[in-house]
Amino acid sequence: MATAAASWADDVDEFELPKLPKPKQTIDENGIITIEEIVINDDGKKVKVTKKIRKKIQKAVVEHAVAERRQWAKFGKEKGSSPGPQVATTTIERENVILKLTAGNKDVDNEPSEEQIIKDNLKKSGAGQLKCRLCSGGHYTAKCPYKNELAGLDAMGEKAGGEDDFGAAGDEGAPTAGASTIGGKYVPPSMRAGARGAGESMRRPGGIGRDDLPTLRVSNLSQDATDSDVRDLFSRFGRVERVYIGRDRDTRIGKGFAFVSFEDRNVADQARQKVDGLGYDNLILKCVWSQPKE
């Protein structure tokens, strides 16, 4: 029964199989064996596969006992297997594993986690910490008592010229060299030591950044609400500086939240209290102070 069932299925399969030419094998004068084979790949297309093999016989002088063991018949689960390694049990790793022997502890290899790098950089950019670029003392570089002696050195080490001495700029001697090479990874300029931290903006310092404006975060907003809708809703409390609606990048459909910046903090607070819990387009709005980006 089983054979009958197998036979008609097999017949069809064999019928479907196109005739493929036999692989051609040639050996050139350098002993390189070239096998040309025509096979059908996974997409059902005929492809020619050319394999070049160079056989290299490695000879080793071994102890008599070792040579004798080579002749032993296989046993157990390998009983009757052909000589040589079996594909099922033995494979050679594709990747080349590198063992580099060097002195010194390998703690350098222990790359700190991403989080740690960011934290370290933030620490380096040091909010509120002062560090003199000349003597590393806790004062502005311009007020360094050793200014005259060390100024020459500073000019040599300082490459990222034009760095201002604004409050939080806690630059170290050579910020670019120190930080951009952490673990050999690329570090974006904003993460490097000397940067003012994430979200560095050209408007700052001096001008008023958008973060400085009192901003409300409105959530549970209708998908259909437009900028002008939201502006209308909030402008009854006071002057609205800016409205931003979070939208899907591709479809441009609202994601249900918006940021509204006011000029006046008191006005914003009033708007926050009034709008929080307000019904708008069948949804109850939630309105809170926007948390500045970390």
């Binding site: 296989k74 046993f75 390998e78 000589p83 040589g84 390694p85 079996q86 049990t89 033995t90 050679i92």
Partner: peptide
């Protein structure tokens, strides 16, 4: 539950002790 024995130079399995 198995013990295997291998040739160390080419990774060929010589047998198992079952």
């Amino acid at each position: 539950h198995t013990i295997n024995v291998w040739f160390s130079d080419n990774g060929e399995r010589l047998g198992t002790y079952d």
